[in-house]
């Protein structure tokens, strides 16, 4: 190589130094704490900051349904899946329906968008507090009305009432997100498609099945993924409203985790639990994502 050619060496790697601060912050805020958690999960302590080796003992106990910890974990896991399933089953169709009925032009568009965005801007614990007050039969409008109508509604003592409250709360808080994503997807469909469908004499339902649903399927995947991850990690709202009760009826994994870690100060158990919890979320998302991209790739192969 001549000197001249080396002069043209196209890339210098100095730009990588710009990434260094981020790298340090991430290491400090995420990687190190995570390592601590991993460290705790294989040890036991009786307080006084003395730890001894426990191997995979905690993990064994956690995954054994007959042990106390394992039983709690499996129950909470079931509640988590049930919760995620229910809110997805409500929010996705509801979100699509609202997006479909939204105006397509004029001032009404901006007004609806602002209204829809409002719940998304409220912090989780505030949402919890609002609903906690809202549902009380003495000072809350909802609770008072229902009680007035003779319906036995008390989210502190009734399991069903507690579940309904939490689900309503999540639907109220997060359906907007699904609506906004679907609305964006719908707006991207060229007018010619609707025009063609009208010429073909398609009914409202046929238009939805033949044009709208296929065209928003990509954003729906994103919506489902976001809502699943978020709902699976639910903590604040049930903590504020029901505190995990009545009994353990609304004790989700995250709530249990806090109980074990801070209530009982079982750092080892809590660490093992949080690692497994994390792995479950990652696995579900990975499976979901792989399946979806696989379907898409298969489609593309058909195209070629």
């Amino acid at each position: 190589m001549t000197g001249e050619a080396r002069e043209l060496k196209p890339y210098n790697n100095r730009a990588w130094f710009m990434v260094l601060p981020v790298f340090l912050i991430v290491a400090f805020s995420a990687v190190l704490p995570l390592m601590t958690v991993v460290n705790y999960s294989v040890q036991d302590t009786f307080g006084n900051n003395t730890f001894f080796w426990n191997g995979i003992g905690w993990f064994k106990e956690l995954l054994d349904p007959n042990s106390e910890l394992g039983g709690r974990f499996i129950d909470a896991l079931g509640r988590n899946f049930l919760f995620s399933f229910l809110i997805l089953a409500i929010e996705i169709p509801l979100g699509i329906a609202v997006a479909l009925s939204m105006p397509r032009q004029g001032v009404a568009v901006s007004i609806s968008l602002v209204l829809l965005a409002l719940p998304l801007l409220i912090p989780w614990n505030v949402v919890g507090t609002i609903w906690q007050v809202f549902g009380r039969s003495d000072i809350g409008l909802l609770g008072w009305t229902l009680t007035g109508l003779g319906i036995d509604y008390n989210y502190v003592s009734g399991v069903l009432a507690a579940w309904i409250t939490i689900i309503l709360m999540d639907v109220w808080h997060w359906t907007s997100l699904v609506v906004l994503l679907c609305y964006a997807g719908l707006r991207a469909i060229p007018d010619a498609f609707y025009q063609a469908a009208r010429i073909d004499g398609a009914s409202r339902w046929a238009i939805f099945r033949a044009i709208q649903l296929p065209k928003i399927s990509r954003v729906l995947v994103i919506a489902v993924l976001l809502r699943f991850m978020d709902s699976f990690m639910i903590y604040t709202e049930p903590f504020v409203v029901t505190g995990g009760g009545p009994g353990n009826a609304t004790t989700f994994i995250s709530i249990d985790l806090v109980k074990i870690a801070l209530g009982q100060f079982d750092l080892g158990k809590a660490a093992a639990l949080s690692i497994v919890y994390n792995l479950i979320i990652l696995t579900v998302c990975w499976v979901f994502y792989t399946v979806m991209t696989h379907v898409e790739n298969a489609e593309r192969r058909v195209q070629l």
């Binding site: 010619a192 025009q195 010429i199």
Partner: peptide, 16 residues
């Protein structure tokens, strides 16, 4: 549109 007996082919292909 749907009450007129017309068909239309657009600039860009419109297919389901």
């Amino acid at each position: 549109t749907e009450k007129r007996n017309i068909a239309q082919v657009f600039q860009f292909p419109v297919i389901y």
